[in-house]
């Protein structure tokens, strides 16, 4: 049985069979996380593709400090943010584009929630909540999505965001506070 580090080391050496095995075990996590983040099937599919291309190219950078799952979550979140930034920049082309913005404070304008995983009976509620979550800064949005939908622990979220558990606690509390005002009228 090949462990995660060995698998990644083999991928770093160019083993595409190992990459396919990794894809088979982790593509669902990547696709659904990207889907929750960008709320659009086509975009999520592109992100899925980019994540595994990046995993193949940057496999040598994985040192095994975090688990493979959290590393893949991190790559997925980063790719989703990059994708949304790229889309936003394309929309704003020709206008003023701030170059020195922090990734954490970015708020992306997602016009429509098109998530096929949302059931019809609570479509209205979930779409409303998602729209409010989209208004949160990136790091708060990431923390709340990973906690509520993916069910990650605060320690795992801290590893994904490369921060401390205390910082994650603060992010979640700030996000919940903001959402509470918006969701309870």
């Amino acid at each position: 049985m090949v462990n995660d580090l060995e698998r990644i080391q083999r991928i770093a050496k160019g083993d595409k069979t190992e990459l396919e095995l990794l894809y088979n075990t982790h593509s669902s996590i990547v696709y659904n996380t990207a889907m929750n983040y960008v709320q659009n099937e086509q975009d999520a599919e592109e992100i899925l593709q980019d994540v595994f291309v990046n995993v193949y190219k940057n496999a040598g950078k994985f040192k095994g400090n975090a688990s493979l799952k959290t590393w893949i979550y991190r790559v997925t979140i980063n790719e989703s943010i990059n994708y949304l930034r790229y889309k936003q920049r394309k929309k704003r082309f020709g206008f003023h584009i701030p170059l020195l913005t922090s990734r954490d404070s970015d708020v992306f304008n997602i016009s429509e929630v098109r998530h096929p995983g949302i059931l019809l009976e609570n479509k209205e509620a979930v779409e409303y909540i998602m729209k409010e979550i989209n208004k949160l800064p990136n790091n708060q949005k990431t923390a709340i999505l990973l906690k509520t939908i993916d069910g990650l622990s605060q320690k795992e979220i801290a590893e994904v965001l490369e921060t401390s558990v205390k910082a994650v606690e603060a992010l979640l509390s700030r996000a919940r506070k903001k959402l509470k005002i918006k969701l309870i009228n």
């Binding site: 099937e41 899925l48 949302i118 979930v126 998602m130 999505l145």
Partner: peptide, 18 residues
């Protein structure tokens, strides 16, 4: 509706990878 609960997000179903 005027009140929404964050826990409703748990109802989102995982979707199949294309």
């Amino acid at each position: 509706r005027s009140n929404y609960n964050l826990e409703e997000l748990r109802e989102i179903r995982p979707i199949e990878v294309p």
